[in-house]
Design a protein around this nucleic acid. Structure first.
Length: 423
DNA sequence: TCTGGGGTCCTAGGACCC
DNA sequence: TCTGGGGTCCTAGGACCC
């Protein structure tokens, strides 16, 4: 009789990660940018920087002004955002040539389980090298690969391998590999956790492994503590498979600093609700929980959410619920501050998602009390939205829309963007 | 010279039910 | 009458990831 025992002793999990993806694509498309310090900008921040720019300290999510101070000869380029998914898809197709067990976790990175592919292609190190060679030759992009026994460790290895490298962590070498690395390389360790660990004198993964997990858990909570411990003792997940379906759909828009007027809030929310609701309908989904976020100055923010009795996916209903929630948040904050507050961003997100059939109509809601089913507006609105979706699929997104919706350029209303720039 | 847009997950308190 | 414990849902805030 055969007993199937999962081979967990080998470094058969690969993490493949395209290097500075957006920036590398720009250098691929425009050869004059190769070897230069470039950054792809968007909304005032750096979305991706080439390694030539990273050497000067330029990093993702950094305000462009600051990046330019660090690297005065930085070349700022506008992204070719239509090209990114196409090129990334070609890379993922190459990965799928090696194994069907590919778990794509973002546009530019994926896990591969190659345990079933070794009899065809050789050991993980050979597969990783061949994957890198093919991506470089067939697509023209640099990609780094890490291989190890677990997903987390493979991801750490690919980060260490960057730029344009390959690292295989054999099981017997795991501790030697991990111990000297900074804790910030671990998945889930951001600035806050890093700061807390530093206060305990913990800077490396080795030091973390020797720290009693109780003391870490008591301040960071069970989940973070357990996650850190899992890597320290090498017991984190090994299963590579498809990602679960999305649990929320949202959209946000930065506004610059502004005192919220009813007109502004309505216009922005109409635009956001339209984006969110049409994406929900395109996915044949609807959601019961509406969450709004109002960002204030100094990056503080307020969230307000409401769970409805039935899922919604119509633009106007979503906007009405969001509008009430946004004003609740703003009023709460103003009351607390004792004066009107300025806001810098509005966001809408819908969660608690369910699948809906294309023909199913939304439960009508009473606009005065969204928790209570009321008039016939719901089904009428659903029908209007479906027609709008059809018109847009034929004539384009701008062919038809709700008013009053603020016109956006690059995600930021022009007037407010100019205002922000003068600051 | 304050910072985009899309997400996931966790925690904690309160309400409510059994 | 008083009391305890467990589970689930909702809401708000926060950390983190790409």
């Amino acid at each position: 009789m055969f007993v199937s025992v999962r081979q967990s002793g080998d470094a058969t999990i690969l993490h493949a990660d395209l290097d500075s993806f957006y920036a590398s694509v720009e250098q691929l498309l425009d050869p004059s940018l190769r070897g230069k310090a470039i950054a792809v900008g968007g909304g005032g921040v750096v979305l991706a920087a080439s390694y030539e720019a990273k050497r000067f300290g330029v990093a993702g999510a950094m305000p462009i002004r600051r990046a330019q101070r660090l690297c005065p000869h930085l070349m700022l380029v506008t992204g070719h955002f239509e090209e990114y998914p196409k090129l990334a898809d070609r890379v993922m197709a190459i990965a799928a040539d090696f194994t069907p067990a590919v778990e794509r976790i973002s546009i530019d990175e994926a896990f591969l389980d190659v345990s079933g592919a070794m009899h065809l292609f050789g050991p993980p190190g050979v597969i990783g090298a061949e994957l890198r060679r093919r991506v470089r030759e067939e697509v023209g992009l640099p990609i780094s690969v890490g291989a190890a026994r677990s997903k987390h460790l493979a991801k750490v290895a690919s980060q260490v391998a960057k730029p344009d490298g390959l690292i295989v962590v054999e099981p017997e070498a795991e501790r030697t590999f991990l111990d000297p690395l900074p804790v910030s390389l671990m998945w889930g360790v951001g600035p806050a956790v890093q700061k807390y660990l530093a206060s305990l004198g913990v800077h490396t993964i080795g030091e973390l492994a020797r720290t009693p997990s109780r003391s870490v858990e008591s301040l960071l909570g069970h989940a973070v503590g357990a996650r850190l411990n899992a890597l320290a003792v090498n017991s984190d997940p090994r299963t590579v498979g498809p990602l679960p379906r999305a649990v929320s759909v949202g959209s946000q828009s930065a506004l610059g600093r502004t005192l919220p007027s009813p007109e502004l809030v309505r216009e922005v929310l109409t635009h956001l609700a339209d984006r969110v609701a049409s994406r929900l309908r395109a996915k044949h989904r609807a959601g019961r929980t509406v969450t709004v976020r109002v960002r204030l100055t100094e990056f503080r923010s307020v969230n307000r959410s409401l769970t409805l009795p039935e899922p919604i996916a119509t633009t106007l209903t979503l906007r009405e619920v969001a509008e009430q929630l946004v004003w609740r948040g703003i009023h709460d904050q103003s009351e607390q501050a004792g004066e009107p507050v300025e806001i810098t961003l509005l966001a809408i997100s819908v969660s608690n998602l369910v699948h809906v059939d294309a023909i199913q109509t939304e439960l009508p809601l009473d606009p005065d009390d969204p928790r209570r089913p009321g008039s016939l507006t719901g089904s009428v609105r659903w029908a209007v939205d479906r027609s709008m979706d059809r018109v847009r699929s034929r004539f384009g997104r701008d062919a038809v829309g709700y008013l009053p919706a603020r016109t956006f350029a690059g995600g930021i209303p022009d007037a407010y963007r100019e205002l922000a720039e003068h600051d």
